[in-house]
């Protein structure tokens, strides 16, 4: 089968199965209305909501730390509370920063660039969700120690300490494991894939696979 024959077949008028609509002003008006309605479902909407919620949480935590530092006497309890919420504040600020960075990336995505460049940017965006989640998980152990104070430390029961160590240990292990393992290099790790699939991040796995596919498409000789 010759190349020219295949090209002839491909370019035969029969292959141009028409979709029947006129490309005129009315067409573009209708599409624009449709687009305005579907904007809420776009990539930007969940990111914007994330930023707003994040900013709200940052303001609350900041005020909490501010009043605690200024208006409470120095104590072991204050150390745990201020220390934990400072770490929570830092990781939330980082996550919000990543979300803002993503919004700039979304705005910069240009369909007029070459296919591999645009598609790689789009696929990488999906993965950035995971980066923010990874940073947010880092704060998890701090939610298990912020309430500790002198009374609990000196007079806490055995049961309290067993539960305390179990919760702090588990969340620390989970946060560190996630932070270390959820990345592009570990894409082929079965445990990482199963974890991500189990937590509804299947689309992130697909995007990562696509990034890999694009890279091999570009480099394969």
């Amino acid at each position: 089968m010759e190349d020219e024959y295949l090209k002839g077949v491909w370019n035969s008028p029969n292959n141009e199965i028409g979709i029947l609509f006129n490309i005129d002003d009315q067409f573009f008006e209708t599409i624009q209305i449709k687009k305005a309605k579907s904007k809420l479902k776009s990539l930007l909407f969940p990111k914007t909501i994330g930023i707003l919620l994040g900013l709200g949480w940052i303001s609350f935590v900041f005020m909490l730390i501010y009043f605690c530092v200024l208006f409470t006497p120095m104590s072991v309890g204050k150390f745990f509370l201020v220390g934990s919420f400072s770490m929570i504040l830092i990781s939330t600020v980082l996550a919000v920063f990543l979300y803002i960075k993503d919004i700039f990336t979304i705005k910069q995505i240009d369909n007029c660039e070459s296919v591999t460049i645009t598609q790689r940017k789009l696929a990488t965006l999906q993965f950035s969700i995971m980066k923010s989640v990874r940073i947010l998980w880092i704060q998890l152990p701090f939610y298990t120690i912020w309430y500790l104070n002198y009374e609990l430390i000196m007079h806490g029961s055995i049961i309290f300490w067993v539960v305390q160590f179990f919760c702090t240990g588990l969340t620390t292990w989970l946060a560190v494991w996630l932070f270390k393992n959820i990345n592009y290099e570990n894409l082929n790790n079965k445990r990482v894939r199963n974890f991500m699939r189990g937590y509804g991040f299947y689309s992130v796995i697909q995007s990562l696979d696509f990034v890999k596919e694009i890279d091999s498409f570009k480099n394969d000789r």
Binding site: N11, V115, Q119, F217
Partner: peptide, 27 residues
């Protein structure tokens, strides 16, 4: 075919030059 291979073959069948295909796909 896979998405990118499909794009490549469409351009080939559309009789685009290798230079133009390379520019469109970024390879």
């Amino acid at each position: 075919l896979k998405e990118l291979d499909r794009a490549l073959m469409i351009l080939f069948l559309e009789a685009k030059s290798y230079k133009e295909i390379a520019e469109i796909l970024g390879i």
